[in-house]
Amino acid sequence: MGEIKIKEKEVVVPGEVLATGMDCLPSYGTYRMGDDIRAAKLGLVRIEGKVVKITPLSGRYLPKRGDTIIANVYDIIMSGWLLKFNSAYHAMLSMKEATSRFIQKGADLTRIYALGDYVVCSITNVTSQKLVDVTMRGPGFRKLEGGRIIEVNTNKVPRVIGKEGSMVGMIKNATNCRITVGQNGIVWIQGEPEMENIAIDAIKKAEAEAHTDGLTDRIKEFLEKKLGKKIDLREHAPERRESPSQEHGFRNEDQGFRNQDNQDQYNDQDDDQQDDQNQQSD
């Protein structure tokens, strides 16, 4: 008869015996050796009936199709942009996937996304050799202007976001900042400089204590102490109007505001291109 040797949510190290017996099943982050199920990663144990799995506590981001990430433009090539996103691999943003508008042949691509720009995009394909394709066509995908970028551990992203975005929603409303969290652990924050600092501290605290219970309450206390005002949790009830990307733990900003932003951005670019054409015709 199988026996589970470890308590739920216990921290285990690689090689530790989690369960014995053939009627327990090894799942993510575990492996079977003889009769034993052992840990293959440092993490927290999850037991679901007879299935034993591990929620990793560390590790770099592995690109997955459908994930929404924040990435940094580090190279521009003939056919598009190359992005790095806090992983062992880089991503390719092709011209076709970069924007819904027309890009003239031979256009200066830095006018659309320049080196060093941060963009919100979605992973469309990952090959066995980890060639990553991303797209920026769709709601919520845009260039990030202003604000600050911080990095959190990619395994802690679900905790930083909270259930249906409750954690990040609370921080956003309390500090009045715009916050976007990518699945790869890159976080963009924009607001009043003082408030940005508080939001960063709160996110870092949530990251550091991600494996503990009662996190939302502690972050609420922390924010109340920093801001010197009471926070009503009901105010920050999860928003219902979520875009499809929300399913992957990615939290959008206010929809209307963003669309307007995008519109402005595209208009700007159109103007730029118009200028280009004018110059060429001159």
Partner: peptide, 11 residues
Amino acid sequence: LADAGIPMRDM
């Protein structure tokens, strides 16, 4: 290596 979250069979 374990702290870095690299998949490993044992220490």
